[in-house]
Every structure is written in C-alpha cells, then in structure tokens.
C-alpha cells in the first residue's frame, strides 16, 4: 500500500517535469515563429543544454560556458553557504533566547518582522555600501534571509510542545537545562528543519542577487553581463537553470540531513517500505 504510494510519488514528479518541458517547448516554438532572435526570449531546452556542453571558449581566458558557470557558482555559493550557516546559528540562538525570556521575545520579534519585510533589493545596496566588499555583502544578506525563517520556525517548534510533555518533565523534577536538552530541542527539530528548507534556496537566490549589484566573478554578475549582451545569451539561460537545480537540491539536502540525524524518521520509513 505505502509502497504503491511512494512509487506513484516518483511518477507524479516525472509527470510534473515532463509537463513543464512540454509547456516550455510549446512556448519556445511559438516564440520562435514570431521573433527574429528567439534565443533572447525563449530558446529551446536542447539549445540550452547543448550550450552547457559546448567546448567553444567564450571569454579571453579560454573559459567555456560550463567552466564559467562552475567557477562563478563556486564564488557565489560558497558565500551563500557561509551566510546560511551564520544565519542558522544566530537564528537558532535567538529562538532559544526568545523562548527563555518573554522580554527578549517582545523586543526582538517586531525587528525580526521588519527585517523580513524590507525587500532585499533595498537592503542589498545598503549592506554593500556599508561593507564595501561584495563577498561580505553576499554573506550578510544570505545570513539575514536565513535568520528569520529559522528563528520563527524554531520558536514555533518550542511553543508547540504540549502541556502534558511539560508536566511529564516537571513530574521528574527536571531542571531547565534538562527540559531543553531532553524535550524541547529534540521536539522542535522538525520545525528547525522546516526553517532551513525555506531559507536554503532563499540564501542562494539572495547571494546571486547581490552579485548583480557590482562587477566581479559571481553568478549574478555573469547573469547581468549576459543579459546586457557582453557575452552569449546562453550564459544567462545556463545560470538560470543551474541555479534552479541547485536551489531545489539545497531544499532536498536539508531533508536528507534531517533524516540522517533523526533515526526515528529513517526507521519509520524503512518499516513502511
């Protein structure tokens, strides 16, 4: 029964992907029939994929599209990762402090909301002008975007622990430390990972966006150069597809890590299959 559902889940995904490809291609044919330079508007998928494996050099230094994408990605994504980790740690610590003290929660929560509501497009230039350094700006923006989902979800996780669980710990005469380490922190783990799943793709998007503000070697920088026509338009398309794949993978990676550190989930799954 369960096995049928999990295998049909694979079919569902396959149908989705296939549907997207079909829609893309139909649109590409329509665009191709009307535009003189359809590559600028919507190329066919095979053209995009083909360009990625093209061995022709597109820059003075002899980079192909693939090596250019990979080196830019290393530049941008490494900063996104650092920012993600910083945001995760700080977000978790703030969630703990907000749960330990109502005063901290009352003071911090409105600021959290405000930070979340400022568009990154507005925040990024400010951060960049303060730091004056594109790499630090990427890290800070990725950290800020990670911070909020991790913090609020983890706090919600702590708050979701029911009355009877608190009573159980109280009946054992548990100290505050034991209450957190043995009950609240493990209980909130799935909420914490929900926060990570939301913020991982966001951190990547944000650091690419920061790239576009200044010249350099990042993904976003190549993206805007390609759009402005200083290199082939396929760099743009390849980076878009590549970033989308990395974003989706980052989401799934969080799920994999979650299952790796919570054996109960792994085992329940094993039993189901």
């Amino acid at each position: 029964m369960i096995k049928r559902i999990t295998s049909s889940k694979g079919i569902v995904t396959a149908v989705w992907v296939l549907g997207l490809v079909v829609i893309w291609e139909i649109c590409a044919f329509i665009v191709g029939a009307t535009q003189r330079t359809p590559v600028n508007v919507l190329p066919h998928l095979y053209q995009i994929i083909g360009s990625f494996f093209d061995t022709k050099s597109i820059t003075g230094s002899g980079d192909t599209i693939a090596t250019l994408v990979f080196s830019s990605a290393a530049e941008t994504l490494s900063r996104a990762l650092i920012g993600f980790i910083i945001g995760m740690v700080l977000g978790y610590i703030l969630a703990l402090l907000m749960h330990l003290s109502h005063i901290v929660e009352k003071i911090a929560f409105p600021y959290l909301m405000i930070i979340q509501m400022i568009p990154i497009l507005g925040m990024a230039p400010i951060v960049l002008s303060i730091t004056g350094d594109i790499s630090s700006a990427r890290i800070i923006i990725a950290a800020i975007l990670t911070f909020y989902p991790v913090s609020t979800n983890t706090l919600a996780g702590f708050k979701s622990v029911g009355r009877e669980r608190h009573e159980l710990m109280r009946s054992y005469g548990a100290s505050k430390f034991q209450l957190y380490t043995k009950m609240l922190i493990p209980s909130a783990m799935s909420y914490f990972f929900t926060g990570l799943k939301i913020s991982a793709p966001m951190a990547i998007t944000a650091s690419i966006l920061v790239d576009t503000l200044q010249g350099g070697n990042g993904l976003g920088c190549m993206l805007s150069q390609s759009l402005k026509g200083s290199m082939t338009r396929f760099v743009f398309w390849d980076i878009v597809i590549f970033s989308a794949v990395i974003g989706v993978l980052s989401y799934y990676l969080m799920g994999v890590i979650e299952r790796a550190i919570t054996p109960s989930k792994r085992k329940a799954k094993k039993k189901a299959q």
Binding site: E164, L168, P186, P263, S264
Partner: peptide, 13 residues
C-alpha cells in the same frame, strides 16, 4: 504519572 496521551518522545526508542 500515566497521562491521557502516552506522551512518548517520538525520537527515542
């Protein structure tokens, strides 16, 4: 104490 819900920790065996 035995509660109305078993109140077991689902991450522990």
């Amino acid at each position: 104490i035995v509660f109305q819900n078993p109140v077991l920790l689902d991450w522990r065996t």
